[in-house]
Simulated assay, not measured.
Amino acid sequence: MSPLNTSNPLALQALMSETIFDIDFQSPSIDDASFEIRPIQTESEIVLKTYGGNNKNILFVISDNSNEFLSADAEIAFMKILKALKLALEDIVVLNHNEPDKGLTFGKVKEKLNPKNCIFLGAEPQLLGIEGCAENILKIQDDIQFLYSYSFEEMLRDTEKKRLFWDAIKLMSL
């Protein structure tokens, strides 16, 4: 191991815990420093862009790359479904998870939104780390009800898919 030699006061302060006395000490300027001070980087906080009030902690996760949240037709259908479930927009929250490489996990979503019910509409639950969700089959894990079903666009085109979704969501205690 070679000896460590420096006269930089910042480096000495970081390396030594005892008081040092030096005769004929010439302090180098900060510009002459041979090292860089880097701030400790912390994990950046994830900002979730959501739609709705989340008063009843009911989370709808969609995946729509062409719209911020829902297309006009999908939004009309969504409002009809909410009304039939006796819910309002203030009761639920919609999260458009259209960036799978964002590093978003269900744990982070749970921290921010605290969902009691989570309905995936066309969005793959695996992208948030939720495994074992079968289509239109209610799953309960950690006191959270999960339902994975079709996207609104699929349900608008196929009434059978809409019926399967409706039968499944009625089983949830919303």
Results as ranks from 00 to 15, higher is better:
Ser44Pro: 14
Phe25Ala: 05
Gln26Asp: 04
Thr50Leu: 05
Tyr51Ser: 09
Lys86Ile: 07
Gly53Phe: 01
Ala33Asn: 08
Asp32Asn: 15
Gly52Gln: 03
Phe60Thr: 03
Lys56Cys: 10
Ala74Ser: 08
Ala84Leu: 12
Ser63Ile: 02
Leu85Ser: 09
Ser71Tyr: 06
Asn67Tyr: 13
Leu70His: 04
Leu48Ile: 11
Gln41Leu: 13
Pro28Glu: 10
Ala74Val: 00
Asp24Trp: 02
Lys83Met: 06
Lys80Cys: 11
Gly52Ser: 03
Leu85Lys: 12
Tyr51Lys: 10
Thr50Ser: 05
Gly52Val: 07
Ser66Gly: 01
Ile37Pro: 04
Phe35Ala: 10
Val61Tyr: 02
Lys49His: 15
Phe78Arg: 01
Ala84Glu: 14
Ala77Leu: 13
Ala74Trp: 00
Leu59Trp: 01
Val94Gln: 00
Ile92Arg: 03
Asp91Phe: 01
His97Asp: 03
Ala84Thr: 11
Glu90Thr: 06
Asn55Val: 00
Ser63Phe: 04
Ser66Asn: 09
Asn98Ile: 00
Ile81Gln: 11
Glu36Ile: 15
Asn65Pro: 10
Asp24Asn: 11
Ser44Trp: 11
Ser27Tyr: 07
Asn55Lys: 05
Met79Gln: 12
Ala33Thr: 11
Phe78Ser: 05
Ile58Gln: 02
Gln41Thr: 09
Ala84Pro: 06
Glu68Ala: 14
Ile40Trp: 02
His97Ala: 01
Ile40Val: 10
Val61Trp: 01
Ile92Ala: 01
Lys80Gln: 14
Glu36Gly: 14
Asn67Asp: 11
Gln41Glu: 13
Phe25Ser: 04
Phe25Leu: 08
Ile40His: 05
Gly52Asn: 04
Lys80His: 12
Thr50Met: 05
Tyr51Asp: 07
Phe35Glu: 05
Phe78Trp: 03
Gln26Tyr: 02
Pro28Arg: 10
Leu59Cys: 01
Val94Arg: 00
Glu75Ile: 03
Phe60Lys: 07
Lys56Ile: 11
Gly52Glu: 02
Asn67Phe: 14
Ala84Asp: 14
Asn96Cys: 02
Leu48His: 09
Met79Trp: 08
Asn96Ser: 00
